[in-house]
Design a binder for these strands. Structure first.
Length: 271
DNA sequence: AGTGCGGCCTGTCCGC
DNA sequence: TGCGGACAGGCCGCAC
Protein backbone atom coordinates (compact mmCIF):
# COMPACT_ATOMS: atom_id res chain seq x y z
CA UNK A 1 0.00 0.00 0.00
CA UNK A 2 2.10 2.83 -1.25
CA UNK A 3 1.98 5.78 1.05
CA UNK A 4 3.58 9.07 0.10
CA UNK A 5 7.08 8.05 1.24
CA UNK A 6 6.92 4.96 -0.91
CA UNK A 7 5.79 6.96 -3.92
CA UNK A 8 8.64 9.40 -3.39
CA UNK A 9 11.09 6.53 -3.02
CA UNK A 10 9.78 5.04 -6.24
CA UNK A 11 10.19 8.38 -7.98
CA UNK A 12 13.79 8.67 -6.86
CA UNK A 13 14.48 5.07 -7.82
CA UNK A 14 13.22 5.29 -11.39
CA UNK A 15 14.21 8.89 -12.13
CA UNK A 16 17.81 8.15 -13.23
CA UNK A 17 16.52 5.66 -15.80
CA UNK A 18 13.77 7.90 -17.14
CA UNK A 19 14.84 11.53 -17.19
CA UNK A 20 16.21 12.55 -20.55
CA UNK A 21 15.35 9.19 -22.11
CA UNK A 22 13.34 8.78 -25.25
CA UNK A 23 10.27 6.55 -25.29
CA UNK A 24 10.21 3.91 -28.04
CA UNK A 25 6.69 2.63 -27.47
CA UNK A 26 4.13 1.40 -25.01
CA UNK A 27 2.73 -2.09 -24.41
CA UNK A 28 -0.59 -2.28 -22.61
CA UNK A 29 -1.56 -5.78 -21.47
CA UNK A 30 -4.40 -4.78 -19.18
CA UNK A 31 -6.32 -1.65 -19.99
CA UNK A 32 -8.87 -1.89 -17.16
CA UNK A 33 -7.26 -0.02 -14.29
CA UNK A 34 -9.04 2.52 -12.04
CA UNK A 35 -9.78 4.28 -15.29
CA UNK A 36 -9.11 2.78 -18.71
CA UNK A 37 -5.59 3.32 -19.98
CA UNK A 38 -5.98 5.65 -23.00
CA UNK A 39 -6.10 3.85 -26.35
CA UNK A 40 -3.60 6.20 -27.88
CA UNK A 41 -1.00 6.17 -25.11
CA UNK A 42 1.49 4.52 -27.47
CA UNK A 43 0.92 7.26 -30.04
CA UNK A 44 1.23 9.98 -27.46
CA UNK A 45 4.47 8.68 -25.96
CA UNK A 46 6.34 7.14 -28.88
CA UNK A 47 9.32 9.24 -29.85
CA UNK A 48 9.14 11.78 -27.06
CA UNK A 49 11.80 12.45 -24.48
CA UNK A 50 10.84 12.52 -20.80
CA UNK A 51 12.17 15.72 -19.29
CA UNK A 52 11.28 15.10 -15.64
CA UNK A 53 9.59 12.75 -13.20
CA UNK A 54 7.67 14.70 -10.60
CA UNK A 55 5.38 13.85 -7.71
CA UNK A 56 2.21 15.59 -6.57
CA UNK A 57 0.71 13.91 -3.55
CA UNK A 58 0.71 10.24 -4.45
CA UNK A 59 0.56 10.95 -8.16
CA UNK A 60 3.62 10.69 -10.39
CA UNK A 61 3.93 13.00 -13.38
CA UNK A 62 6.15 12.28 -16.35
CA UNK A 63 6.75 15.48 -18.29
CA UNK A 64 7.28 15.43 -22.04
CA UNK A 65 7.15 18.18 -24.67
CA UNK A 66 3.94 16.64 -25.98
CA UNK A 67 2.07 16.38 -22.69
CA UNK A 68 2.21 14.59 -19.35
CA UNK A 69 1.71 11.05 -18.17
CA UNK A 70 -0.16 10.91 -14.87
CA UNK A 71 0.34 7.74 -12.86
CA UNK A 72 -1.05 6.56 -9.53
CA UNK A 73 0.02 3.34 -7.82
CA UNK A 74 -3.33 2.83 -6.11
CA UNK A 75 -2.74 0.53 -3.23
CA UNK A 76 -0.94 -2.42 -4.77
CA UNK A 77 0.91 -0.78 -7.64
CA UNK A 78 4.65 -0.71 -8.16
CA UNK A 79 7.11 0.37 -10.81
CA UNK A 80 10.40 -1.18 -11.80
CA UNK A 81 12.94 -0.88 -14.52
CA UNK A 82 12.89 -4.08 -16.57
CA UNK A 83 15.63 -5.26 -18.90
CA UNK A 84 14.81 -6.80 -22.29
CA UNK A 85 15.26 -10.30 -20.83
CA UNK A 86 13.13 -9.80 -17.73
CA UNK A 87 10.12 -12.08 -17.88
CA UNK A 88 6.70 -10.48 -17.80
CA UNK A 89 4.94 -11.49 -14.61
CA UNK A 90 1.31 -11.75 -13.71
CA UNK A 91 -0.20 -8.26 -13.24
CA UNK A 92 2.55 -6.51 -15.23
CA UNK A 93 -0.05 -4.35 -16.99
CA UNK A 94 1.94 -1.70 -18.85
CA UNK A 95 5.47 -1.38 -20.25
CA UNK A 96 6.89 1.94 -21.36
CA UNK A 97 9.82 1.01 -23.59
CA UNK A 98 12.81 3.30 -23.43
CA UNK A 99 15.66 3.89 -25.82
CA UNK A 100 18.47 1.56 -24.84
CA UNK A 101 16.27 -1.49 -24.33
CA UNK A 102 14.96 -1.04 -20.82
CA UNK A 103 11.35 -0.51 -19.90
CA UNK A 104 9.42 1.11 -17.11
CA UNK A 105 7.07 -1.65 -15.99
CA UNK A 106 3.82 -1.02 -14.12
CA UNK A 107 2.65 -3.88 -11.90
CA UNK A 108 -0.64 -3.73 -10.00
CA UNK A 109 -2.55 -6.82 -8.77
CA UNK A 110 -5.59 -4.94 -7.49
CA UNK A 111 -5.72 -2.47 -10.35
CA UNK A 112 -6.64 0.54 -8.23
CA UNK A 113 -3.85 2.45 -9.93
CA UNK A 114 -4.15 4.51 -13.10
CA UNK A 115 -2.23 5.83 -16.10
CA UNK A 116 -3.70 8.86 -17.79
CA UNK A 117 -2.55 11.30 -20.42
CA UNK A 118 -2.77 15.05 -19.90
CA UNK A 119 -2.46 17.32 -22.93
CA UNK A 120 -2.42 20.64 -21.11
CA UNK A 121 -1.22 21.96 -17.78
CA UNK A 122 -1.23 19.11 -15.22
CA UNK A 123 -1.99 21.51 -12.38
CA UNK A 124 -5.34 22.24 -14.02
CA UNK A 125 -6.29 18.57 -14.33
CA UNK A 126 -9.45 17.70 -12.36
CA UNK A 127 -7.57 15.08 -10.31
CA UNK A 128 -4.89 17.57 -9.28
CA UNK A 129 -6.47 20.98 -9.23
CA UNK A 130 -8.34 20.54 -5.93
CA UNK A 131 -5.51 18.90 -4.02
CA UNK A 132 -4.32 20.36 -0.73
CA UNK A 133 -0.71 21.35 -0.03
CA UNK A 134 2.19 18.94 0.21
CA UNK A 135 2.60 17.85 3.83
CA UNK A 136 6.33 18.58 3.84
CA UNK A 137 5.97 22.04 2.35
CA UNK A 138 5.93 25.31 4.26
CA UNK A 139 2.36 25.89 3.11
CA UNK A 140 1.24 23.07 5.37
CA UNK A 141 1.45 24.58 8.82
CA UNK A 142 -0.56 24.87 12.01
CA UNK A 143 -2.38 28.03 10.92
CA UNK A 144 -3.47 26.44 7.68
CA UNK A 145 -4.74 23.24 9.26
CA UNK A 146 -6.44 25.04 12.13
CA UNK A 147 -8.21 27.45 9.77
CA UNK A 148 -9.39 24.70 7.45
CA UNK A 149 -10.71 22.68 10.37
CA UNK A 150 -13.13 25.30 11.66
CA UNK A 151 -16.72 24.20 11.35
CA UNK A 152 -15.75 20.64 10.49
CA UNK A 153 -17.57 17.96 12.41
CA UNK A 154 -15.75 15.00 10.87
CA UNK A 155 -13.28 13.07 13.03
CA UNK A 156 -9.79 14.56 12.86
CA UNK A 157 -8.38 11.37 11.37
CA UNK A 158 -10.67 11.59 8.35
CA UNK A 159 -9.96 15.30 8.14
CA UNK A 160 -6.19 14.83 7.77
CA UNK A 161 -6.70 11.93 5.35
CA UNK A 162 -8.73 14.16 3.02
CA UNK A 163 -6.48 14.93 0.05
CA UNK A 164 -8.27 18.21 -0.46
CA UNK A 165 -6.98 19.29 2.95
CA UNK A 166 -3.48 17.86 2.70
CA UNK A 167 -2.14 15.24 0.30
CA UNK A 168 -0.28 12.08 1.11
CA UNK A 169 -1.46 11.25 4.62
CA UNK A 170 -2.63 7.66 4.25
CA UNK A 171 -4.13 5.38 6.84
CA UNK A 172 -0.87 4.10 8.32
CA UNK A 173 0.69 7.49 8.89
CA UNK A 174 -2.56 9.11 10.00
CA UNK A 175 -2.74 6.56 12.81
CA UNK A 176 0.93 7.04 13.67
CA UNK A 177 0.91 10.84 13.56
CA UNK A 178 -2.18 11.05 15.77
CA UNK A 179 -0.55 8.75 18.31
CA UNK A 180 2.62 10.81 18.30
CA UNK A 181 0.58 13.99 18.74
CA UNK A 182 -1.41 12.35 21.58
CA UNK A 183 -4.63 13.22 19.78
CA UNK A 184 -7.62 10.87 19.73
CA UNK A 185 -8.58 10.08 16.10
CA UNK A 186 -12.28 10.32 16.93
CA UNK A 187 -12.25 13.97 17.99
CA UNK A 188 -14.16 16.40 15.81
CA UNK A 189 -11.72 18.35 13.66
CA UNK A 190 -13.50 21.63 14.38
CA UNK A 191 -13.10 21.38 18.12
CA UNK A 192 -9.34 21.02 18.32
CA UNK A 193 -7.17 23.94 19.40
CA UNK A 194 -4.47 25.68 17.35
CA UNK A 195 -1.86 24.37 19.79
CA UNK A 196 -2.92 20.77 19.26
CA UNK A 197 -2.84 21.30 15.50
CA UNK A 198 0.68 22.66 15.76
CA UNK A 199 1.73 19.40 17.39
CA UNK A 200 -0.14 17.34 14.82
CA UNK A 201 1.41 19.18 11.86
CA UNK A 202 4.79 18.63 13.45
CA UNK A 203 4.25 14.91 13.82
CA UNK A 204 2.87 14.47 10.30
CA UNK A 205 5.98 16.11 8.91
CA UNK A 206 8.25 14.04 11.12
CA UNK A 207 6.67 10.69 10.46
CA UNK A 208 6.58 11.22 6.69
CA UNK A 209 10.02 12.79 6.58
CA UNK A 210 11.59 9.93 8.50
CA UNK A 211 9.96 7.35 6.26
CA UNK A 212 11.30 9.08 3.15
CA UNK A 213 14.78 9.15 4.67
CA UNK A 214 14.62 5.45 5.45
CA UNK A 215 13.26 4.75 1.97
CA UNK A 216 16.10 6.77 0.54
CA UNK A 217 18.80 4.96 2.44
CA UNK A 218 17.42 1.50 1.79
CA UNK A 219 16.58 2.35 -1.80
CA UNK A 220 16.41 -0.99 -3.49
CA UNK A 221 17.75 -1.67 -6.91
CA UNK A 222 14.90 -0.79 -9.24
CA UNK A 223 16.60 -2.70 -12.03
CA UNK A 224 15.74 -6.38 -12.14
CA UNK A 225 14.37 -6.67 -8.61
CA UNK A 226 10.72 -6.85 -7.78
CA UNK A 227 10.50 -3.08 -7.83
CA UNK A 228 9.06 -2.85 -4.39
CA UNK A 229 10.85 -0.16 -2.45
CA UNK A 230 12.20 -1.26 0.92
CA UNK A 231 9.41 -1.21 3.41
CA UNK A 232 9.60 1.66 5.82
CA UNK A 233 10.36 -0.23 8.94
CA UNK A 234 10.30 2.60 11.33
CA UNK A 235 8.69 0.77 14.21
CA UNK A 236 4.97 1.32 13.96
CA UNK A 237 3.51 2.40 17.29
CA UNK A 238 -0.16 1.67 16.67
CA UNK A 239 -0.97 0.68 13.09
CA UNK A 240 -1.62 -3.05 12.89
CA UNK A 241 -1.32 -3.40 16.68
CA UNK A 242 -4.96 -3.35 17.78
CA UNK A 243 -5.40 -5.45 20.93
CA UNK A 244 -1.70 -5.24 21.74
CA UNK A 245 -0.19 -3.10 24.45
CA UNK A 246 0.68 0.57 24.02
CA UNK A 247 4.46 0.99 23.87
CA UNK A 248 4.20 4.07 26.08
CA UNK A 249 1.67 3.21 28.80
CA UNK A 250 0.94 -0.52 28.27
CA UNK A 251 -2.81 0.00 27.96
CA UNK A 252 -4.51 -2.24 25.38
CA UNK A 253 -4.73 -0.43 22.04
CA UNK A 254 -8.25 0.05 20.68
CA UNK A 255 -9.17 -0.79 17.12
CA UNK A 256 -12.23 0.83 15.59
CA UNK A 257 -13.57 1.70 12.12
CA UNK A 258 -13.53 5.32 11.07
CA UNK A 259 -14.80 6.03 7.58
CA UNK A 260 -14.44 2.31 6.83
CA UNK A 261 -10.77 2.48 7.71
CA UNK A 262 -9.03 0.51 10.40
CA UNK A 263 -8.15 2.91 13.19
CA UNK A 264 -5.90 2.01 16.11
CA UNK A 265 -5.20 4.24 19.08
CA UNK A 266 -4.44 4.35 22.76
CA UNK A 267 -7.34 5.81 24.67
CA UNK A 268 -5.08 6.54 27.62
CA UNK A 269 -2.35 8.41 25.71
CA UNK A 270 -4.54 10.06 23.08
CA UNK A 271 -7.08 12.64 24.20
C1' DA B 1 -20.41 22.77 1.33
C1' DG B 2 -19.60 19.02 4.13
C1' DT B 3 -20.30 14.30 5.21
C1' DG B 4 -20.74 9.43 4.61
C1' DC B 5 -20.62 5.55 1.99
C1' DG B 6 -20.49 2.37 -2.27
C1' DG B 7 -17.51 0.57 -5.49
C1' DC B 8 -13.51 -0.78 -7.92
C1' DC B 9 -9.96 -5.31 -7.46
C1' DT B 10 -7.15 -9.59 -5.94
C1' DG B 11 -4.22 -11.88 -2.46
C1' DT B 12 -4.38 -13.51 2.07
C1' DC B 13 -6.35 -15.33 5.93
C1' DC B 14 -9.93 -17.56 8.63
C1' DG B 15 -13.51 -20.91 9.76
C1' DC B 16 -16.05 -24.79 8.49
C1' DT C 1 -7.60 -30.26 1.88
C1' DG C 2 -10.85 -27.27 -0.32
C1' DC C 3 -13.91 -23.66 -0.46
C1' DG C 4 -16.51 -19.53 0.53
C1' DG C 5 -16.42 -15.28 2.63
C1' DA C 6 -14.41 -11.35 5.08
C1' DC C 7 -10.97 -8.12 4.88
C1' DA C 8 -7.45 -4.84 3.35
C1' DG C 9 -7.14 -0.06 1.28
C1' DG C 10 -6.78 5.07 -2.07
C1' DC C 11 -9.82 7.80 -3.64
C1' DC C 12 -13.42 9.07 -6.82
C1' DG C 13 -18.24 9.97 -7.35
C1' DC C 14 -22.56 10.05 -5.76
C1' DA C 15 -26.59 10.99 -2.57
C1' DC C 16 -28.19 13.47 1.17
Amino acid sequence: MPELPEVETTRRGIEPYITGKQVRGVTVRQRALRWPVPDDLDTKLSGVRVSAVRRRGKYLLFDTPRGHLLLHLGMSGSLRIAGPADAVRKHDHVDIHLAGGRSLRFHDPRRFGCLLWIDSEPEAHPLLVELGPEPLSAAFDADYLFTRSRGRSAPVKQFIMDSHIVVGVGNIYANEALFAAKLAPTRKAGGISAERYAALVDEIKQVLGRAIEVGGTTLRDFVGGDGKPGYFQQALQVYGRGGEHCRVCSAVLKEIRLGQRSTVYCSRCQK
